[in-house]
Measured scan of single mutants.
Amino acid sequence: VTLFVALYDYEARTEDDLSAHKGEKFQILNSSEGDWWEARSLTTGETGYIPSNYVAPV
């Protein structure tokens, strides 16, 4: 399991995006899409895309 933590708040801009709150942890499901990674929030269980530069490894 690849875990990352949000460094900043991010507000989803499309229905495919996933909002993130600073300190929230995510499981990365797919990081092969360049700057946008598919992730699952460990807080809400929701999945979507987050900007890779907004997260760091735990």
Rank of each mutant, 00 (worst) to 15 (best):
residue 1 V to F: 13
residue 1 V to N: 14
residue 2 T to M: 12
residue 2 T to S: 11
residue 3 L to H: 09
residue 3 L to E: 10
residue 4 F to Y: 15
residue 4 F to A: 10
residue 4 F to C: 12
residue 5 V to E: 12
residue 5 V to R: 01
residue 8 Y to P: 00
residue 8 Y to Q: 09
residue 10 Y to G: 00
residue 11 E to W: 09
residue 11 E to Y: 09
residue 11 E to A: 09
residue 13 R to N: 09
residue 13 R to E: 11
residue 13 R to I: 10
residue 13 R to S: 10
residue 14 T to D: 12
residue 14 T to G: 15
residue 14 T to Y: 15
residue 15 E to N: 11
residue 16 D to L: 14
residue 16 D to S: 14
residue 18 L to V: 07
residue 18 L to T: 02
residue 19 S to M: 06
residue 20 A to N: 01
residue 20 A to Q: 02
residue 21 H to G: 05
residue 21 H to P: 01
residue 21 H to L: 09
residue 21 H to R: 14
residue 21 H to A: 10
residue 21 H to M: 11
residue 23 G to M: 02
residue 23 G to H: 03
residue 23 G to L: 01
residue 23 G to S: 02
residue 23 G to Y: 04
residue 24 E to W: 04
residue 24 E to I: 03
residue 24 E to F: 03
residue 25 K to Y: 15
residue 25 K to C: 14
residue 25 K to Q: 12
residue 26 F to T: 01
residue 26 F to V: 04
residue 27 Q to W: 14
residue 27 Q to F: 14
residue 28 I to M: 04
residue 29 L to H: 04
residue 29 L to F: 07
residue 30 N to A: 08
residue 30 N to Q: 08
residue 32 S to P: 10
residue 32 S to N: 11
residue 33 E to A: 13
residue 33 E to L: 14
residue 34 G to V: 11
residue 34 G to A: 13
residue 34 G to W: 09
residue 35 D to I: 10
residue 36 W to T: 06
residue 37 W to V: 10
residue 37 W to C: 05
residue 38 E to Q: 13
residue 38 E to S: 07
residue 39 A to R: 00
residue 39 A to D: 01
residue 39 A to E: 00
residue 42 L to A: 05
residue 43 T to Q: 09
residue 43 T to N: 09
residue 43 T to H: 10
residue 44 T to W: 01
residue 44 T to R: 03
residue 44 T to G: 03
residue 45 G to M: 06
residue 45 G to Y: 06
residue 46 E to A: 13
residue 47 T to Y: 07
residue 48 G to P: 00
residue 48 G to K: 02
residue 48 G to T: 04
residue 49 Y to V: 06
residue 49 Y to P: 01
residue 49 Y to S: 05
residue 49 Y to A: 04
residue 50 I to V: 06
residue 50 I to W: 02
residue 51 P to H: 09
residue 51 P to D: 06
residue 52 S to W: 10
residue 52 S to Y: 08
residue 52 S to I: 06
residue 52 S to H: 08
residue 54 Y to Q: 08
residue 55 V to N: 00
residue 56 A to C: 11
residue 57 P to Q: 07
residue 57 P to S: 06
residue 57 P to D: 04
residue 57 P to W: 05
residue 58 V to F: 09
residue 58 V to L: 12
residue 58 V to W: 11
